[in-house]
Design a protein around this nucleic acid. Structure first.
Length: 667
DNA sequence: TTACCTCGAGATCA
DNA sequence: CTCGAGGTAA
């Protein structure tokens, strides 16, 4: 076909296919038979093959699955993808309502289904879908764009040319799940355990053609930058998403009191079994975006929303045994070994019993019939014992007096529930310590998992973390299941870990009370391991967020002769001991007006987005916090600022409008 | 805690 | 081809 004609036809095909697709999948109201759709799609693919330059990034042909990837890339979320707080009963809902009303006064709620799938974010640039990602740890997820493109309800081009990030829940409808498993059984393949796992598995395929065949679906529920879209409430936001061509869930209701919310929750609950997709709860959101903003966030979730979780399924099984394991800190933890049983879509055979007290309190005995559920639908838990079903065969369980790994006496430190092995030479502790050292948030040494560490330890090749850096190619290649490739990869990642910034090393050392967060704080403050080693308790306590306990633990740790020797050894082996992250640097030293000040943003900004304002102020050394207190130095009030402005006036805190902020930022 | 995908190792067969 | 480790998700 001649070029110009081909181009026109391709454009026409885009429009037609997109229209039919939208009608079929999003509106559920097709105007042409499937065969027509298939015919057009075939024609489009053929044309694109003939004229590759006509293949647009938003071409509907991508629905059938693009190129095979060799790995998923990391994606940084523009705004973090947080999880929601949970409510398990009416009481929790009323508490939530009380907290909300205390902070912002009268509210309206929007009640929505909580779809049981995987959270994804979808990035659009100038109206075109450019990147889709999993939630990951909330900050960084995986790029699954190609797989998401195969979901027909995700518009490849929105109806308006915005650049936005929307959030939604990808899932597999119950019907698709059943058909898929039926087909798998016929092909003698293992069926998937439940629709959620099937959906997650499909989206983690490197070949998008497989994902394309899985009939996934999505409900979209938010835009990260809603306030910049002229939308004022969550429910308007959902309508707006509909207008943009997304599929939202239409089972949603606005409520003005918590009693009404509870009523709606009860009503929605009854629909659960009849829905064509699985839900694991109901989400209640403060409807007004201004009020949402005012409520803000805790460290891990928004204060303006809560997820009502359905009561967890409970199942009876037999407790076969209690297994003991010794952790990195020497704590001995009992784990229940259960007769395998299906709970909430998966098979459960182990459940942590946490400590001796819990076993005593619930009077758990070996061979007891126990009730098991999955707390938060993930972690298995022994709820209680069916005492009335005892046969007399059951045996009481007593924690051992000696460490199951090294035989030394276990102690129970006052005020603690855990029994501890305090032998510093205990092999279990050393092994666990090594595993922790190489783990992802610590030194992040790829290819060095639990199994390899255990082998190295047993082969007497590694006794402490410094030994890891002395391993040779010959030693590694002779291990079980280690070939050329694995060995080279491992050596490379060990080498790479030498360059890690100080906080990773600090966290990896496993000093008591020093988690990832404290390690970062210390690294940032002291900058070198040397300075930290020499810090006195007083100096440590002075650091923000480092308290008495952490300071003591650090001092005790760095007093030990063998520890100092180990650290010197690491340094000699080439392990970096200085902080490499972004410096608080420029910020605090900056002579900007904002430097060192604690600032609160409230109300709607019109010229710049809240995120940009935050970033710019922080770059100049200001600290943005969520609520006004007497520690606040300055409040920036946009339009329609609410209680935070009132509070600022009450406390006599300086208040600026947006114009003043912008002029100061320009300096 | 379990399920799923991907990879490399090593066994087995050609 | 099967196994198991490692990573990720809820």
């Amino acid at each position: 076909m001649e070029k110009e004609a081909a181009k026109r036809r391709v454009e026409q095909l885009h429009a037609l296919i997109n229209k039919y697709n939208y009608e079929y999948h999003t509106l559920d109201d097709p105007s042409v038979p499937d065969s027509e759709y298939d015919k057009l799609m075939k024609e489009l693919i053929a044309l694109e093959e003939e004229h590759p330059d006509l293949k647009m990034p938003d071409s509907p042909s991508q629905r059938v699955g693009g190129a095979v990837l060799d790995a998923f890339q990391k994606v940084l979320h523009k705004t973090p993808m947080l999880s929601l707080g949970n409510a398990f009963n009416e009481e929790d809902l009323r508490d939530f309502d009380r907290r909300v009303r205390q902070a912002v006064g009268d509210v309206e709620y929007n009640v929505e289904f909580k779809i049981d799938g995987l959270a994804v974010s979808l990035r659009y640039e100038n109206g075109v879908f450019v990147r889709g990602a999993t939630r990951g740890d909330g900050t960084t997820g995986e790029d699954i764009t190609e797989n998401l493109k195969t979901i027909r309800n995700i518009p490849l081009r929105m109806k308006r040319d915005f650049s936005i990030e929307v959030r939604g829940e990808a899932f597999m409808p119950k019907r698709s799940f059943e058909l898929l498993n039926q087909a798998r059984l016929e092909r003698d393949e293992e069926p998937f355990a439940n629709p959620r796992n099937a959906a997650a598995g499909s989206l983690r395929q490197l070949d998008p053609k497989i994902a394309a065949k899985r009939n996934l679906d999505i409900f979209v529920y938010s835009i990260a930058e809603l306030d910049e879209m002229g939308v004022e409430t969550q429910s308007q936001g959902l309508d707006f998403l509909d207008e943009l061509g997304f599929k939202t869930n239409h089972e949603r209701k606005k409520c003005s009191t918590i009693e009404e919310v509870i009523e709606i929750v009860e009503e929605l609950k009854t629909k659960r079994a009849d829905l064509p997709y699985e839900i694991d709860g109901i989400v209640i959101k403060v409807n007004s975006l201004d009020q949402q903003e005012e409520l803000g966030f805790t460290a891990k979730s928004p204060r303006w929303a809560i997820a009502y979780k359905f009561p967890a399924e409970e199942v009876v099984t037999t407790l076969l045994d209690i297994e003991l394991s010794v952790g990195r800190t020497g704590a001995v933890t009992p784990t229940a070994i259960l007769e395998p049983v299906k709970v909430a879509g998966t098979t459960v055979q182990r459940a942590s019993l946490h400590n001796e007290d819990l076993i005593k309190e619930k009077d758990i005995r070996l061979l007891d019939k126990v009730v098991v559920k999955k707390a938060g639908d993930i972690i298995p838990e022994v709820v209680n014992v069916l005492v009335e079903q005892r046969t007399g065969e059951e045996k009481e369980f007593n924690m051992p007096k000696e460490c199951p790994e090294c035989g030394s006496e276990l102690v129970r430190i006052e005020g603690e529930v855990a029994l501890r092995c305090i032998n510093p030479e205990c092999p279990a502790q050393i092994r666990e310590g090594l595993i922790h050292f190489v783990s992802r948030n610590a030194m992040n040494i790829d290819g060095l998992g639990e199994r390899v560490i255990t082998q190295l330890f047993h082969e007497d090749l590694v006794h402490n973390v410094a030994d890891l850096y002395k391993l040779t190619r010959e030693q590694l290649i002779n291990l079980e299941r280690m070939g050329e490739k694995s060995t080279d990869n491992l050596l490379k990642s060990i080498e790479k870990s030498k360059e890690n910034s100080l906080e990773r090393l600090l966290f990896g050392l496993g000093i008591r009370f020093i988690g990832a967060k404290a390690a970062k704080t210390l690294a940032l403050h002291f900058e070198t391991l040397d300075k930290l080693k020499k810090a006195t308790k007083e100096e440590l306590i002075e650091v923000d967020e480092i308290g008495d306990k952490m300071a003591d633990a650090l001092v005790t740790y760095f007093e030990k002769e063998e520890i100092l020797k180990l650290l010197d050894e690491l340094e000699e082996l080439g392990v970096n001991t200085v902080y490499k992250g972004p410096k608080k640097a420029a910020a605090e030293a900056s002579d900007s007006y904002f430097a060192g000040k604690t600032i609160v943003l409230t109300g709607k900004l019109s010229e710049m987005s809240r995120n940009d304002a935050k970033a710019e102020i922080e770059a100049l050394g200001g600290k943005i916090t969520g609520s006004v207190s007497k520690k606040t130095d300055l409040v920036i009030a946009g339009e329609a600022a609410g209680s935070k402005l009132a509070k600022a006036e009450e406390l006599n805190i300086e208040v600026w409008d947006e114009a003043r902020l912008i002029s100061e930022l320009k300096k």
